[in-house]
């Protein structure tokens, strides 16, 4: 096992995150089983106290997860010198792919899921009947399982790095490999074009739903509330957009911004180009907030509380729009300057 300050620090954070996740999941399940608004008030109060524990530790957990994401990549970076052949993060990932890539992906997904829970909790607390209580408690079990899986993946990767030669990013992206489609590796503008088309579509949706949300208090409006099908559609659309974004970065944007025609490494892009983490973060957060909007409004209880939550939902959509637009603008300016 490679042992350095980063790995020890990361393992400490990972352990804390696991404890938080499991504690929240167990308590969430226990409260979910007994939660009933018609319970006697003191019984409900006893359960509410447990919910406060969950909120406390998940708030801490969210803050921890925000720190763990850059820390994970710093930790991987610190391992480069110990792995022959590795010159960047792709080399380190190749030690134990696909475990390493899944673990890295979870570093983006988990903060998003925590964010969803915290936003749902915030909205829930605006309404005396707390309509999302059961939904948010139920969510904690799969979240806890995911955190456990992530901890196992992290530990198995960090504890079992063998001292063997690995290949680096150029061999991954530039030399044609049978297991990767060429369209996903060669320098091409197609993914960038598809990305912008989808991004403008999603931006248009945000504007549409912003207007529609404001009008949703009027009679016969807000037909999308409670519709699970719309939630699935939007989730798929946004996931598709994210995948296309990654492909666009890999195939055309990285070589263009790094100034090296064969350098497709996204990790190098994020490390060496100062605004790359910024636009990446803004686009990711903007899409996540939009997705959270749909997950909330697709809840069966939402229609009854729409008017009470109107202001907050409009704010959510606005922030989603600002972040997505901001990220797209920064990316576009850089693309224009690089051409």
């Amino acid at each position: 096992m490679i042992l350095n300050n980063y790995i020890i620090t990361y393992l400490v954070c990972s352990s804390l995150s696991l404890v938080i996740g499991l504690l929240a999941a167990v308590n969430g399940f226990l409260v979910w089983k007994k939660w009933d608004i018609t319970n006697p008030a003191d019984e409900q109060y006893r359960l509410e106290k447990k919910v406060y524990l969950i909120i406390t530790i998940l708030s801490l957990g969210f803050f921890l997860r925000i720190l763990m994401t850059p820390l994970w990549f710093w930790t991987l970076h610190s391992m480069i010198i110990s792995i022959p052949g590795a010159m960047c993060l792709v080399g380190v990932h190749n030690i134990a792919a696909p475990i390493s890539y899944i673990a890295s992906g979870l570093k983006l997904i988990l903060p998003a899921l925590y964010g969803y829970w915290l936003i749902l909790n915030l909205l829930d607390r605006y309404v005396p009947t707390q309509p999302f209580m059961k939904q948010k408690l139920m969510f904690l079990t799969p979240l806890g399982i995911l955190i456990l899986a992530e901890t196992i993946l992290d530990a198995s990767f960090l504890f079992s790095v063998p001292p063997r030669q690995v290949s680096c990013c150029t061999s991954l992206f530039d030399v044609p490999r049978e297991d990767i489609l060429q369209i996903a590796t060669e320098s091409t503008w197609i993914w960038v074009v598809i990305f912008y088309i989808l991004a403008f579509f999603i931006s248009g949706e945000i504007v549409y739903f912003l207007i529609a949300q404001k009008r949703s208090a009027l009679p016969n409006r807000g037909r999308w509330f409670g519709k699970k099908s719309l939630m699935f559609f939007e989730t798929l659309a946004i996931l598709l957009l994210l995948v296309v974004f990654i492909l666009a970065l890999q195939t055309r944007i990285s070589p263009l911004f790094l100034g090296l025609p064969f350098h497709h490494c996204i990790f190098c892009l994020l490390q060496e180009v100062w605004d790359a983490p910024l636009f990446f973060f803004m686009i990711f957060v903007g899409l996540t907030l939009f997705l959270i909007y749909f997950w909330v409004v697709s809840s069966a209880n939402y229609r009854d509380v729409n008017e009470l939550l109107m202001e907050e939902m409009v704010r959510l959509l606005k922030w989603s729009g600002y972040m997505l637009a901001g990220g797209l603008i920064i990316l576009s300016i850089h693309l224009f300057l690089a051409l």
């Binding site: 608004i37 018609t38 006697p40 008030a41 003191d42 409900q44 109060y45 509410e48 406060y52 607390r125 005396p128 707390q130």
Partner: peptide, 22 residues
């Protein structure tokens, strides 16, 4: 403190089952 049974109204709003933060 909360009642274990019955109902309570304050300023025309029933608060018997209001959550703690309300």
């Amino acid at each position: 403190t909360r009642i274990t049974g019955g109902r309570l109204w304050l300023a025309d709003q029933e608060v018997s089952h209001f959550p703690d933060h309300f």
